[in-house]
Amino acid sequence: MATLILAEHDDAHLNEATAKTLTAALALGQPVDVLVAGQNAKAVADAAAQLTGVRSVLLADGESLANRRAEPLADLIVSLAGQYDAIVVPGTSTGKNVAPRVAALLDVMQISEITKVVSPDTFERPIYAGNAIETVQSSDKTRVITVRIAAFPAAAAGGNAPVETIAAPGDSGLSSFVGADLSVSDRPELASAKVIVSGGRALGSAEKFQEVIAPLADQLKAAIGASRAAVDSGYAPNDWQVGQTGKVVAPDLYIAIGISGAIQHLAGMKDSKVIVAINKDGDAPIFQVADYGLVDDLFTVVPALTKALAN
């Protein structure tokens, strides 16, 4: 049999999450087809066809798929499922939204956010926000899997797979798209940023948070994160929160500024490649996970670091 992966895209561009999902899917050892579901998404299908290791690209193009609402998208995937013994979906907001709907319609138990393929039916996945790693084996006829994107490298370009057009599903009319308000910030998204500068309660106020954190983030082209304590104190908006109940991130570089390192914060960032901690309190738990620490006053060190990086 074969594996089907769902492409992550915005109708114009193929998202890198697709190439990472492909790497996980290829580890199952079967031929891999890529489903591109969208509206006017031919360019995306052509880009997917160039990923190395793809057998063929299925392009379903139609109005019902314009915003990848879960109901029509799940119906489409289920209609294809008979030809596949694994359906692998990126752990993006679109993927996490649709995959369980597919799994339930197929009466199978989804394996969420895998970080490693042990064998075609056995996977590692983090639980308790990464504080434990579970190895699970599936006994279902079809495996429905979502992939923790940060855990897999992107498959290379260099392929030339055929693109086959398939019919888009009808629309049940259960849901409709009202609108989107996508952030136009120049900063990268927190969830996928390569560098994150995060601030904690020691910043003392929303003004200081901006004044100290933003210039360093600008200098590093980084996303800005915050500890729950900083969010609860009103220094930073809730969607910046990194932690067990916020966003779980794994950038190449994570700079924690004035963050003591509560358990629930560490759970959200400890898989970062390199962690830097800047904190006045040398005994703060954040230093137990940091690769490099500066025990000093953040209000002098951070501007100095920003300046040093500018030179």
């Binding site: 199978v108 790693i133 006994s139 137990q288 996970v289 500066l294």
Partner: peptide
């Protein structure tokens, strides 16, 4: 259940780095 949990382990820990 449909899934069998074969084992649960601690993630490979991070060790404290250096203070500069």
């Amino acid at each position: 259940p449909r899934l069998t949990v074969l084992k649960t382990v601690e993630p490979t820990g991070r060790t404290a780095g250096v203070k500069l």
